[in-house]
């Protein structure tokens, strides 16, 4: 089985967002970049499937050279090789075009992604790629098993989940608890250094959206503390002051 896992390099979940250049750029200074947490789930499940059933796992990132530490970490976790499309990931359509181009060249059985990137929270790339390749896309996937050429999938829906069956190839947006996050071990880190990371130039250049500036949310006002012995006051305040109940 040939699996492609698409990963993003995103600011750590604990990052405090600040802006520069007259609010037209996110300030990258001091920001720690990590693999998208959902992408980590996708990769971990891909490596598990490879260990069970054989095959290869290729990691793909559309990004600039500064994403390479994240790609190396994915190789250390167990991917066999990696491709970086050398371009700034300007919007979902552009990224999807790059992923679709790589997929057309190599025909993968499974293309695994995260349910959404934690920076722009689009949750779009898997659907657009599925459409471009003319194959189904399913998200968010909580459970994935492969039996022959059929995928058995559990997808989260609002208020519950549904079980699905579909033939390969497929594009899936993954989330927990599809697999346990894997942490690279020493051997993994050593072998990752010699695994192949191919850099290719972008195939298309369709950007359909463009960010002109950023804003930060206004700070919440001070927290009004209510003594525990007067807890009931809260309910009155929620009705008369906050007017939410």
């Amino acid at each position: 089985m040939k699996i492609l896992v698409c990963v993003t390099s995103v600011p750590d979940t604990i990052t405090k967002i600040t802006l520069t250049d007259n609010n037209t750029k996110l300030n990258k200074a001091g920001v720690q970049f990590i693999t998208g947490p959902y992408d980590d789930y996708a990769l971990s499940r891909a490596v598990e499937l490879k260990e069970q059933q054989g095959g290869t796992v290729t990691v793909l990132n559309v990004g600039e050279a500064d994403a390479e530490p994240v790609i190396r970490k994915c190789l250390a976790i167990g991917a066999d090789d990696a491709i970086r499309v050398n371009a700034e990931p300007t919007d979902a359509y552009f990224v999807a075009e790059q992923i679709a181009a790589v997929a057309r060249e190599n025909s993968y059985d499974l293309i695994l992604m995260g349910r959404e990137s934690i920076d722009y929270n689009g949750g779009q790339v898997h659907g657009i790629v599925g459409e471009m390749l003319g194959i189904p896309s399913i998200s968010p996937v909580m459970k994935l098993d492969i039996e022959g050429s059929t995928a058995k999938i559990t997808r989260e829906i609002e208020g519950g989940h549904e079980d699905l069956e579909a033939g390969l190839p497929l594009v899936l947006g993954c989330q927990e608890p599809i697999a346990e996050w894997k942490i690279p071990n020493m051997r993994g880190i050593m072998t990752a250094r010699t695994k192949k990371l191919t850099v290719v130039e972008p195939a298309g250049k369709d950007t359909l959206t463009q960010i002109s500036s950023y804003e930060l949310p206004p700070a919440r006002g001070a927290c009004k503390m209510i003594p525990a012995e007067e807890a009931e006051t809260l309910i009155r305040l929620l009705r008369t002051e906050a007017k939410v109940i």
Partner: peptide
């Protein structure tokens, strides 16, 4: 809203 509510992006739709 981006970064799960930690920032906003003013986005132009050019298509």
């Amino acid at each position: 809203s981006i970064f799960t509510g930690k920032a906003f992006a003013i986005t132009e739709l050019t298509a």
